[in-house]
Simulated scan of single mutants.
Amino acid sequence: MSEQTGDTATDTNKRPGWLARAGLMILVSSIIAVSAFATWTFLTRNDAPLPGVGTKQVIVPPREMPDFTLTSDSGQPLRLSDLRGTPVLLFFGFTHCPDVCPTTLGEFRQIKAKMGEKGEQARFVFISVDGSRDTPESLAAYLHAFDPAFIGLTGDEELVRTIGKDYYVYFERVTLGTATAAGENYTVDHTTYSYLIDADGRLRVIYPFQAPTQMIADDIKSLL
Rank of each mutant, 00 (worst) to 15 (best):
T69K: 09
T44A: 04
T192W: 11
D189R: 13
R79K: 14
A36Q: 10
D82H: 13
P212R: 08
P16M: 02
R15S: 06
L224W: 13
A217D: 08
P62S: 03
T41C: 09
R109D: 04
L139T: 06
D7Y: 10
L78C: 07
F146N: 06
E184V: 11
K221C: 15
I197M: 05
V188W: 13
A22G: 11
V28M: 09
T71H: 11
Y195G: 04
G119D: 11
L83H: 09
T44M: 06
D7L: 15
Q57G: 12
I111A: 01
P66K: 00
E184S: 14
V188I: 13
K56I: 00
R15V: 00
R161P: 12
E172W: 08
M115C: 03
G52H: 03
Y170V: 03
T95C: 00
G201K: 03
F94W: 09
P136W: 01
P16T: 02
D67N: 11
M25N: 12
V160N: 02
A217E: 10
R45Q: 15
S194A: 04
T41P: 00
E184A: 10
I220R: 09
Q4K: 15
L19D: 08
G106W: 00
R161K: 15
A113G: 09
H144S: 14
L50K: 02
A113K: 13
E137Y: 10
F42C: 08
E117H: 07
Q210E: 11
G52C: 05
E117N: 10
T192C: 13
P62D: 03
M1D: 12
R123S: 11
V58E: 14
T103L: 00
I111D: 02
E157Y: 10
T154W: 13
A211S: 05
I31M: 03
L176V: 01
S132F: 15
D134G: 08
D218Y: 05
V100T: 00
F126G: 06
L196I: 00
Y193P: 07
R63N: 08
S132K: 15
V129Q: 05
G17A: 05
D67Y: 07
P136M: 01
E172I: 00
L19P: 01
F171D: 04
I220Y: 13
K118H: 15
L223Y: 13
V169P: 11
R204Y: 09
L223Q: 14
Y167S: 01
D11N: 15
P16F: 03
L196R: 08
G177Q: 05
S81M: 03
G183D: 00
I163L: 08
N46E: 06
P208C: 11
L43R: 13
W18K: 06
T39S: 11
G116H: 04
I163T: 02
T162H: 08
L43C: 04
K56N: 04
E64A: 13
L43E: 14
